[in-house]
Amino acid sequence: MTDGTQTGEVLTRTQQFESICKILEEFEYREEKLIPILQRIQDVYHYLPKEIIEFVANSIKIPASRIYGVATFYSHFTLEPKGKHLIRCCNGTACHVKQSIPIINAIRKKLNMQEGKNTSDDLLFSIEIVSCLGACGLAPVVVIDGEVHGQMSPAKVEALLDKILKKEAGNE
């Protein structure tokens, strides 16, 4: 990805808008490219803001309701704001057997996210429980900002989060 849309990077609102325009141009404003367009936009914002849904609808001249339909059909898309750092915890069969639940609970406790809440109030972290990441040999697996961490334990994952929190505190 060359338009500065990698997870974790923070763009200004202006840069975000410029990225969206670039994405639309790249896909030539074509209706049949809607899904890749939405995927790339989600990379920019980490979610699909409703204003952007309407902007895309107007730009490629299709009804906004259709984009809403597509965006709510695929679980890959989200209309809720996501945190800067995305934590994906595997709870597939192998990871589950290897005690993934205590890991998930530890993350939730550490980041103060109750059950049912998937983004921290400071918008720093989002958690996603997924059903298999295809790395069962490394179970239990946690992926943070695209980086795979195998054979996790509550203590190990807490250490990883501490590292990110420390870095973020330094940024302030």
Binding site: I62, A64, G69, F73
Partner: peptide
């Protein structure tokens, strides 16, 4: 040719709605 209504979500959660669940007066 307007497309105010469409399906949202899927399977047993599917429903018909204007974009972003807005009321008809706002679309």
């Amino acid at each position: 040719g307007i497309g105010v209504l469409d399906f949202a979500k899927r399977g047993s959660n599917a429903y018909v709605t204007p974009c972003l669940d807005k009321p008809l007066s706002e679309v």
